[in-house]
């Protein structure tokens, strides 16, 4: 299950950051992607919410350290 979620997340990251070859793992953090800053972060959260049709808890939006932290809420 985590695998397919990660695939969908990867697709969103690739599209969102316009990085068609990027590999996303549960360990990926904002430090790994230059364009992932505080402004794009919120947009990225919106994109994930839309894709998975969920509302992310605020603490996740604010404190998520890596993709793995997000996955369980998606």
């Amino acid at each position: 299950m985590t695998e397919t979620k990660l695939d969908r997340i990867t697709a969103i990251f690739r599209d969102f950051f316009n990085l068609p070859n990027i590999v996303i793992s549960t360990e990926t953090t904002a430090d790994d992607i230059d364009a992932w800053d505080s402004l794009t972060h919120v947009e990225l959260m919106m994109a994930l919410e839309e894709e998975f049709n969920v509302r992310l808890p605020t603490k996740v939006i604010m404190n998520a350290k890596n993709v793995g932290d997000l996955i369980e809420y998606l």
């Binding site: 919120v42 605020t58 604010m62």
Partner: peptide, 8 residues
């Protein structure tokens, strides 16, 4: 949430 996060 966005207001809290970054005054959006």
């Amino acid at each position: 949430r966005f207001w809290a996060y970054g005054r959006f």
